[in-house]
Design a binder for these strands. Structure first.
Lengths: 160, 160
DNA sequence: TTGCTCCTCACGTCACGTGAGGTGGC
DNA sequence: TTGCTCCTCACGTCACGTGAGGTGGC
């Protein structure tokens, strides 16, 4: 199962999960991820599989989960007497997280498209502009279609 | 243009952008979003269009941008002498943000699928389980396909 | 008039970042 | 041996949250 694999150093953990050493130590402080032991020199050693757990935690964080929410997820099974009830509650929790993920995904998708549309306007109109960047000049510019500008462009290019 | 629309209260700003009053005041502290004035009682008043700017800021934050990055975006046009150069630099900045957004989108998509697969396992196998939630019992469970479990399930259900 | 919201400090919190001074490991 | 990384405090930082005590506005 990987439990007997040879232990892995903090450095390798950090590399695989794309976090920092401080973050891993902090997760240990709050009880999320503990090393299996230490080297003779006092360096932390982890199970090889723990890199995957760290990665999961890091991804849940990027997804907007708090450490408290993550701890709740990991603690749920252990905190219930029977598997049926634990399973039901966990399904509920996961459904909430998934719902938030879906909302976040649609928001990020819209934002990506909006920023992309701004780049397109900059490339097609502003890249050849010979004028200094002034509010009145840009507001009167005939190279851009003022009625169909992406939201991000309007605010960043000060057209509002 | 919306600049002459009747001013809008903090309450309406917060509602439209789904943030908090504290957050709006904080953005004012750091110079990101200033009211056009105050009511006779001292309450903040904003241009109607500013709700959209607040929404953009809030979305950029959800997307992982720091306030410093957001400030840089909004300040770029004003900080360059000619529009061509400002346009070029802004294209670069936006391209970076878009790239990060794409990475984040793929991460969140994978995570959503992983969590969804965990819910599916819980529904198909654990929901009918009569046993207490123990590590040995679950590790020996014949209702789940141990070779194809989603990563999140393995860690949350303590199968590693 | 009653409530709910807004106002301004100001301290608290979450999730780490960042030196300071010392040791480990290839 | 030289560097780079790790170790443990411990204080700093970012982006707000949360009362405390007082006023505004429908």
């Amino acid at each position: 199962m990987g439990a007997e694999d040879k232990p892995v150093t903090l450095r390798e953990m950090v590399k695989r999960a794309r976090t920092t050493a401080r973050t891993v130590r902090f997760y240990e402080e709050v009880g999320l991820l503990c090393p299996v032991g230490r080297s003779k020199g006092g360096h932390r050693l982890y199970r090889a599989a723990d890199a995957e757990k760290l990665e999961l935690i890091a991804e849940l964080r990027v997804a907007g989960c708090s450490l408290e929410q993550i701890r709740t997820l990991f603690a749920l099974k252990h905190s219930r007497r029977d598997a049926r009830r634990a399973s039901g509650e966990l399904q509920g929790l996961l459904a909430q997280r998934i719902d938030e993920l879906k909302h976040r995904l649609s928001l990020l998708t819209r934002l990506r498209d909006d920023l992309g549309a701004s780049v397109a306007v900059l490339q097609s109109a502003c890249a050849q502009c010979k004028h200094p960047p002034g509010e009145e000049l840009c507001a009167a510019c005939t190279d851009i279609d003022h009625d169909h500008l992406p939201r991000s462009f309007r605010w960043i290019w000060e057209l509002i």
